[in-house]
Nucleic acid binder design. Sequence first.
DNA 1: GTTTAGTTGACTAAATTATTCGGGTATACA
DNA 2: TGTATACCCGAATAATTTAGTCAACTAAAC
Lengths: 161, 161
Amino acid sequence: MRLTTKGRFAVTAMIDVALHGTDGPVTLAAVSERQRISLSYLEQLFGKLRRSGLVDSVRGPGGGYLLARTAAELSVAEIIVAVDEPIDATQCGGRENCLDDRRCMTHDLWAGLNNHIFSFLSGVSLAHLVAQQQAVAAKAMETRKAPAGTKPCKVPVTAAA
Amino acid sequence: MRLTTKGRFAVTAMIDVALHGTDGPVTLAAVSERQRISLSYLEQLFGKLRRSGLVDSVRGPGGGYLLARTAAELSVAEIIVAVDEPIDATQCGGRENCLDDRRCMTHDLWAGLNNHIFSFLSGVSLAHLVAQQQAVAAKAMETRKAPAGTKPCKVPVTAAA
DNA sequence: GTTTAGTTGACTAAATTATTCGGGTATACA
DNA sequence: TGTATACCCGAATAATTTAGTCAACTAAAC
């Protein structure tokens, strides 16, 4: 389990698809413009997401990508695993020879920690993130009368379009 | 919160110090040999760990590094944060201008997820990892009579020196 | 049959990770 | 006082990953 910006891009894009895919496929061009992620990079990421069975693709005009399951059934862990390289995890696992004690210690140690993180992220669904975000947006709408400019980056009231 | 092999190296090295630092400082040369991590890389990592107050250093002959606190008081989260770059986290937070709705959505979204992961890893102490590993080692010792060679990478019985 | 949009692969640039090198400084010890 | 040990520091480098670009191709709608 690795956590980099690559996985973030993937999750962000998936949330975009979840939000905008309610009535038909979402084109990567649209995601690219909204999320400011390069189109070709998205193509790479969605190629992996598709091969992992997380999204379905529709070709031709009016086509695009759709979630293969509901947002509630798609976990953050799945998305990150799909786009991140298999990760050699522990240098000794398999091909590499096991040099000495400590090496193996590291192996088991990280395998255990990986499991923890993985199971944690498996419990976080796309729907959960969306709901959380919408709650923040709703809260921001109520406190809109607060002095403008206090915080440059704030969730706009039109977020959940 | 980022999770890469860099953080793993740091945690692995810290565990090595925890295990071998019971009676005096541990030299990076020893850690380097045991964990097969390049000495200079360790120096870089421990420079950060020291500046973050996670380890204390002793110079001169017989010197080395010691945990600044007990293993139970050192969390995995602290170690990873210490060695990983500050991480720009969200492209819009501060310097960057907030282009549109979605940009900010990503911001809050990841900030939330970061908090989750961070608090989770904050609950995992160095002592916890060591204990977990020793439990595995103890178990391996009992089942030592199993046919040799079934699993090339196994925790040796002499691990908890 | 033209346009839309996914599909694929190769190629490049930038960033990060990992390593190497070459010097320093503080301290124990003889 | 000298010398060896081991931390300390910064620069340079190689390898890998991330991010972006380009070009050609395929499937489907109209």
